[in-house]
Simulated scan of single mutants.
Amino acid sequence: MLGKKQNANPLRLRPNYEALNLPAAEIHFSNFGKQVGRADGAFRSVFRGRSMELEDLREYVAGDNLRDIDWKSSSRTGEILVRNYVADKKRRFMFVVDTGRNMLGAMPDGHSKTAAGIITAASAAYMCTKAGAEYQIIGGMEAGRQERFSCGPGFLEAQLRRLEGCYNMSVQLAGKKKAALTDEFNMQLKRIVASPMRSVSLFLITDLYGVLTLDDRLIKSICTVRDLYVILMEDADWGSSHIYNAQTGVAVSEYLSYSSGMADEISNKKADLQAKAMRNLRACGASYEVVRSTQDITESIIKVLNRGVG
């Protein structure tokens, strides 16, 4: 895992939420039937993702359906308000984000996988909410922590701040020999799978290293009973200056970093490992996307949620 030196300053990275409103309309949760059956209350409705029961009113945001505007309340308050409906069966997501030292590395576009992971979690949670789902976000280092499923701006911000805390801890512990963080992501998933979570989809945000550390039997057991979505942040290519090993924190010498022979060997090895990981995910029935640039995050989320298996 290659990267550039991270500083210890607190992270605060957020996507442009307003720009996500229109893309969120493309999400249709086509595999909803795998999560719940008729006994759980799932059935088709002419109103996509909602019932006729009014839950509350909220301020209009760009991308909302104009048919949902409550004109009486809007004229009374002077603000454009839209109706929120109680979902027939709300979809629930658990976003499990790898916050190990491997995520401190860089991507091909030069951005850190840490930044991409936070933006992906925030964007996916926001877009799923717009599509009528609830969620919680769990960092790979948060042993055993689970919260209520919810949504809304305040809830999302609290979840992201907790996630940033996990990444900041990884930065502080990077390079320390006693910091055994490499298996936390795998252990967290095992704890989650062992807990009773009816009708909850898992959405993993990690990289190639994180996927390779997962037990194949664990992935199969997840896909047997619930949907599994995976976003992988691709590692930076070999052949630039001022790079270091994200696992050890040791800088790579200029002589090695510009070695064409070393670059070819690492590129071929990465391609082989990535092909193996993709075969395993595909065989288990998981939906996945590989992200090479932060600009691809929104499109990748839509593809993976719509079962866009590559």
Rank of each mutant, 00 (worst) to 15 (best):
S241L: 15
A133F: 08
F95C: 02
E164G: 04
G110D: 13
Q6T: 06
A133K: 06
L204D: 07
T206W: 03
V309T: 15
V97T: 06
L160G: 01
M127S: 12
A180C: 11
N245P: 02
T294R: 10
D70M: 14
L189K: 04
K190R: 15
A251W: 04
F32H: 08
Q136Y: 08
R14C: 09
C166A: 15
L20Q: 00
L81G: 00
N65C: 08
S201D: 07
T213C: 09
S293W: 02
L163W: 03
L202A: 07
L104G: 04
M1N: 04
V86A: 11
D296S: 09
F93H: 03
H28S: 11
Q35N: 14
S75D: 11
K270T: 08
A116I: 00
E18V: 13
G33M: 14
G100L: 02
L232N: 13
S260K: 12
N280D: 13
A116K: 00
L66K: 13
R83D: 07
S74W: 07
Q188I: 05
K270Y: 11
G310L: 11
G249Q: 06
P153Q: 01
R162H: 13
Y209C: 13
V230E: 06
G63L: 07
L173F: 05
E142D: 09
A251G: 10
K270L: 07
G152T: 14
R191S: 15
Q146P: 06
K113F: 00
S259H: 08
A263L: 01
L202S: 02
K72I: 08
K130C: 11
A133T: 10
E164T: 02
D70A: 12
D64H: 04
S30R: 14
D216F: 09
I266C: 12
G3K: 03
I118T: 03
Y17G: 02
E26R: 14
F149Q: 01
V61H: 12
F93Y: 06
A125P: 00
Q172R: 11
M197C: 09
N168P: 08
L13A: 10
G37V: 03
R282L: 08
F32I: 09
Q6W: 05
I266E: 13
K303I: 06
S73G: 03
G139E: 00
Y209T: 10
E289C: 13
A158V: 03
R282H: 08
R92Q: 15
G154Y: 14
Q274N: 08
E184S: 13
Y229C: 06
R76A: 04
A133R: 02
H111M: 11
V96Y: 01
I231K: 01
K34F: 10
I219E: 04
V96S: 05
S253G: 07
E55S: 09
I137R: 03
G132H: 01
D183A: 10
S259G: 00
D109P: 05
A283W: 05
V250L: 14
A283H: 13
M141Y: 05
P196G: 05
D98R: 00
